[in-house]
């Protein structure tokens, strides 16, 4: 069972729908016991960085997520959820993240419209089982105003280009981040979720 951390107001039901449609069992939850008993955890993205961290703290989930990650359980962050895995964000201030991945989060720069909203292509940087059946230049759906910066290159699995290079998929052992929404990225997105499911199973 995959635990989807249900800590805010966004559309996480569609994530559950997507996982169900590819035969994965997923529960929306904030309960420590359910999270501990899960085979994998997905941290979706909801609202602003500061509010999200505050919500996780109020639910007593930050340490639990850090423990589960350290114990080797697959943990995937989607969109803001990916950003939360990193050290720090400069979204309207300076906020500490979960610190599971090295790097910071800053506003998208360059002569482009922000938010970065729509379908953009993936450029793969290394081989990964996450990319099975996902050709280079596949389109996935992004909606975000902030992106990860100053991260170790070897964690970059795939990127996109929008006002510069934006990390799209990052991975360090059992930790995965996807800046786009796989649950909203059509057939390719479902394939990516299947690949994550393989990792969890």
């Amino acid at each position: 069972m995959i635990a989807i951390i249900d800590y805010g107001a966004g559309n996480i039901k569609s994530l559950q729908f997507a996982l169900t449609s590819i035969g994965l069992d997923a529960k929306l939850t904030t309960e420590a016991s359910v999270i501990r008993n899960s085979d994998g955890i997905i941290l979706p993205g909801v609202g602003a960085f500061r509010d999200a961290m505050e919500a996780l703290r109020n639910l007593n989930l930050t340490e639990l997520l850090q423990q589960e990650a350290a114990a080797g359980k697959p943990l995937m962050g989607i969109c803001l959820g990916m950003q939360l895995l990193f050290d720090k964000s400069y979204e309207d201030g300076e906020w500490r993240g979960l610190g599971l991945l090295q790097g910071t989060v800053d506003r998208i720069s360059g002569e482009v419209k922000v938010p970065h909203m729509g379908w953009n292509t993936l450029t793969h940087h290394q081989e990964s089982s996450l990319l099975n059946g996902v050709p280079d230049e596949s389109y996935v759906y992004f909606v975000h105003s902030y992106a990860v910066r100053s991260y170790p290159q070897h964690q970059l699995v795939s990127s996109t280009t929008y006002g510069g290079l934006i990390p799209a998929i990052v991975q360090k052992d059992n930790l995965i981040g996807m800046q786009f929404h796989p649950e909203k990225s059509g057939r390719i997105g479902l394939q990516l979720l299947k690949n994550v499911g393989e990792m969890i199973a």
């Binding site: 039901k13 649950e183 059509g186």
Partner: peptide, 10 residues
Amino acid sequence: EKVAAEIAIP
């Protein structure tokens, strides 16, 4: 909700 369950696009 029924539609959201059937699609994987925004």
